[in-house]
Design a protein around this nucleic acid. Structure first.
Length: 718
DNA sequence: GAGCACTGC
């Protein structure tokens, strides 16, 4: 224990980073906040925010008239609005936006850009001819921001201001300020590639580089060009972001101007490890106790680690150490884990205010980087690690690996300490190691299966996906692999080097699903089991429906037996969904059967949406009742590229890439040796595992894709 | 007999 208490890190204040988050500096004219300065070593960042330097243009003034009827609450809101850093630069901003079709706006947390700019545009009545659409990477953000803006504008949500996210929307004919998830706007583009409803598109949080934002970059550029060419009203585009590689973005958007607005962030002291640490978990824990012994009570600590298991064990250890009598003179420690898989009531614990004489320690995954904001955090301990998923085109498996985070992520994490007051960030890595980190995270689009993206681009009418104007081009292998998959699924045909969407492909694009799942559903009518595969695919779209509490493994296993089918995991899922529907989504029933109510409810919601898409596409929904062979054959029709074959030595090799894989112990097929296994995904952890599996007949494989399997020489049993 | 960061349609 003494090892933990002995700090391996010597306090080492880094001069430039100490000032980096200094709010005094960030109010001066030629500096924004920490992130900008944090990048100065490596990035050509314009450190002269033009907003602060130029006088207001006479055409746009910096005031607006609150109507006298306003309540005290509204007056307070107006006061808050006027105090935002974006407010003084309103005029300059508007004059720039009037002139330009594309503008990049860099502003850190607290600048007010997201809530104010849509209102500025509305106040100019620039939304007369078309609405303003503002995208967010996350649903909650889209909803909460729209609520805030509606409140500020003193209108009812769903009227002038609205939102639209999957499964939920509040919009009407009169909605002019519409907050949506980026995925939602992608969907809209399939129906309306010119985005003709909108006069302004604001892509917010662009630095996060989600697949959808990246694709939208290209789509808005295309829509802008085509609207111009067709003599339609121009599309105006604002890219909003925290600090990023500005030149890269500006060059992409026709060398458009980049505007800066300062953020509002309290100063943060940065501490780096003096020397390399070889055990980041141990380093993080000892840092917590070092802080604990020095910091005043109620100054809470947020620790960033990588995953559930690691976090649970660290939480346990910290609690054990905290009991030691040598620590009795210090504040009482309240330690909480935080990760997405945690039940909601346990997640809520982290929001509970710290009592007097107490200190809260939150040990979290990167969920606390952006998705969840915890009040009271004054200290951040950053292990510098996160789990990141990447996809390998040739082998087709997903890797979920612990990796070093990027500099941008490190700044984001540090920033969590400075939201309410001056904060501190302790980094379990040296300054040299920090400098050696990648500046920005690898964009999602460069580490994902592109089949969905390519299908959607084709559906939008972008003919040449090979030359699509991605801001960062995926590798040709990635693109080629996606095209091959789509060809095998019968979604596209390749004719003299151009891709053509088939009728099936057009329908597939309508589904909010991976193309191979959409293909399963579209194959439903042929096997008379659309009803069944809808349930299975909906279940696959959700997180695991099983609950497996560590103390009650035995009981959970017994409960699962009721639903287990020798016909595999997919049929087992089907039985569970059927049973859940039969008990009318009973929560108690879920509890008794060790099933996850939230995820099952989500699955039914997805199912409902899929049914609607089926109706739109004219897909007949019929049931095969107990004919599970039909269901399995139907699964093969979409998932036939995910099949492995039993070898003479008892191993399995995937047919697609001859990759060795093992049946995961959570599968009902575990311990058995069917000749052919259809799996849902390959996950590469210690070994390569097949997750969610169904045994299939070789003959079925031939029936669905004769050529594909002839090449692979599968053996048909007599 | 293994173990899974986080979003989104």
């Amino acid at each position: 224990m003494a090892g933990f208490l002995e700090p391996p890190i010597k306090k080492q204040k880094s001069e430039d980073n100490n000032t980096a988050f200094n709010s005094n500096q960030s109010t001066s004219q030629n500096s924004t906040n920490g992130k900008v300065n944090g990048h100065t070593n490596n990035t050509p960042v314009n450190r002269n925010p033009p907003f602060c330097k130029f006088p207001s243009s006479p055409k746009f003034n910096n005031t607006f008239d609150p109507k006298p009827r306003h309540s005290d609450h509204l007056k307070a809101l107006i006061k808050q609005r006027r105090a935002l850093p974006i407010f003084p630069v309103r005029a300059k901003l508007l004059s720039e936006l009037e002139k330009q079709d594309f503008v990049i706006l860099i502003g850190e947390t607290g600048s007010g850009k997201t809530t104010q700019i849509p209102q500025f545009l509305h106040e100019q009545r620039w939304d007369r001819k078309g609405a303003i659409c503002i995208t967010q990477p996350r649903r909650v953000a889209a909803i909460t921001i729209s609520k805030r803006v509606a409140e500020e504008m003193d209108t009812k949500l769903g009227g002038l201001v609205g939102y639209s996210v999957r499964f939920e929307e509040a919009v009407s004919q009169s909605t002019k300020l519409k907050f949506v998830t980026d995925g939602m706007l992608m969907r809209e583009a399939i129906v309306d590639p010119l985005l003709s409803k909108y006069s302004w598109i604001i892509l917010d949080e662009a630095h996060e580089r989600t697949i959808s934002t990246d694709v939208l970059f290209g789509i808005v550029k295309d829509a802008h060009k085509n609207r111009k060419a067709n003599g339609k009203d121009p599309l105006k585009v604002i890219i909003m972001s925290a600090t990023m590689d500005v030149d890269h973005f500006s060059n992409y958007f026709h060398k458009c101007p980049v505007l800066y607005v300062e953020g509002r962030q309290h100063p943060i002291d940065m501490f780096y490890a003096k020397e390399k640490q070889d055990d980041y978990v141990l380093t993080s824990m000892s840092t917590v106790f070092q802080i604990h012994k020095e910091a005043p009570p109620q100054h809470d600590i947020l620790v960033f680690l990588t995953g559930q298991e690691e976090i649970d064990s660290v939480v346990h250890t910290i609690r054990q150490i905290a009991k030691d009598s040598s620590l009795s003179e210090y504040p009482r420690l309240r330690v909480h884990p935080l990760y997405a898989a945690l039940p909601a009531h346990q997640q809520l614990e982290v929001f509970r205010a710290t009592a007097e004489g107490e200190r809260k320690v939150i040990v979290s995954t990167n969920i606390a980087e952006t998705s969840i904001t915890i009040p009271g955090i004054r200290y951040v301990v950053d292990s510098g690690r996160a789990k990141i998923r990447s996809y390998h085109p040739n082998s087709g498996f997903d890797m979920l690996k612990v990796r070093k985070i990027s500099q941008a992520q490190a700044w984001q994490r540090a920033g969590r300490a400075g939201r309410e007051a001056a904060g501190h960030c302790y980094r379990g890595f040296t300054r040299e190691e920090f400098d050696a980190l990648e500046l920005n995270p690898v964009p999602e689009i460069l580490r994902s299966n592109l089949a969905s993206v390519i299908l959607q681009l084709l559906a939008i009418g972008i003919k040449n996906v090979l030359t699509f104007d991605f801001i960062d081009k995926p590798s040709p292998e990635h693109v080629q692999e996606a095209i091959e998959q789509l060809t095998l699924l019968g979604a596209v045909t390749v004719q003299s080097e151009t891709l053509e969407l088939t009728e099936t492909g057009k329908k597939m694009a309508q589904f909010p699903l991976e193309p191979r799942y959409a293909k399963v559903i579209l194959s439903g009518p042929e096997y008379g089991c659309t009803d069944e595969v809808l349930s299975i695919i909906a279940a696959l779209s959700s997180e695991s429906v099983f609950v497996n509490p560590s103390g009650k493994r035995e009981a959970a296993a017994i409960a699962k037996r009721k639903f287990i089918s020798v016909e595999g995991d997919h049929i087992t899922l089907l039985k569970i969904i059927r049973a859940f529907k039969a008990v009318k989504s009973n929560k108690m029933w879920c509890h008794e059967n060790f099933l996850n109510f939230r995820n099952l409810t989500y699955a039914l919601e997805v199912r409902k949406q899929l049914v609607q898409v089926c109706q739109r596409c004219g897909v007949n929904i019929s049931s095969c009742q107990q004919n599970f062979d039909a269901v399995r054959r139907c699964l093969v029709a979409g998932l036939f590229t995910s099949v492995s074959e039993l070898q003479l030595d008892g191993r399995y090799l995937t047919l697609a890439a001859k990759q060795e894989a093992t049946i995961h112990p959570s599968s009902v097929l575990f311990g058995g040796k069917p000749a052919y296994v259809l799996f849902t995904e390959l996950v590469h952890t210690g070994q390569t595992y097949m997750h969610v599996n169904t045994p299939v007949d070789a003959q079925w494989l031939y029936d669905v894709a004769p050529e594909y399997f002839r090449k692979r020489h599968i053996k048909i049993n007599p």
